[in-house]
Computed example of a mutant assay.
Amino acid sequence: MATTRHELRLRAPIAHTVLDVIRARFDRVSTPGPDGTVLIVGNLDQASVRALLTLLWDTGHEVLAFEETSHE
């Protein structure tokens, strides 16, 4: 079964309170860079992608890029 990975690049670091909410709602969440401008979330369906983007926009985070990759 293929797994998906969603990488979002943000203009500014993600707020810790928002990151806590995202980690509570979604599995496999990481911010690999020290500045917190990249968010990686694994295995999201279409409704979850929409919910994540809405949460980021509603909390004032500007998404610069969004990429989905699949891995076997």
Score class of each variant (00 low, 15 high):
M1I: 10
M1A: 14
A2R: 12
T3L: 12
T4W: 03
H6A: 02
E7I: 11
R9D: 09
R11H: 00
R11N: 00
R11W: 05
P13G: 13
I14F: 08
A15E: 08
H16D: 14
T17A: 11
V18L: 10
D20P: 02
V21K: 09
R25H: 09
F26C: 06
F26A: 04
D27I: 05
R28K: 13
R28L: 09
V29H: 10
V29F: 13
S30M: 07
S30P: 01
T31H: 04
G33C: 09
P34Q: 10
D35R: 13
T37C: 09
V38T: 13
V41Y: 10
G42D: 15
G42W: 06
D45F: 11
Q46I: 02
Q46C: 04
Q46G: 00
A47E: 13
S48L: 02
V49I: 11
R50I: 10
R50F: 05
R50D: 11
R50T: 12
A51Q: 01
L52H: 07
L53K: 06
D58P: 00
D58I: 01
D58Q: 15
G60V: 14
H61N: 14
L64G: 04
A65W: 02
F66V: 07
F66R: 02
F66D: 07
E67F: 05
E67P: 03
E67Y: 03
E68A: 08
S70C: 06
S70G: 10
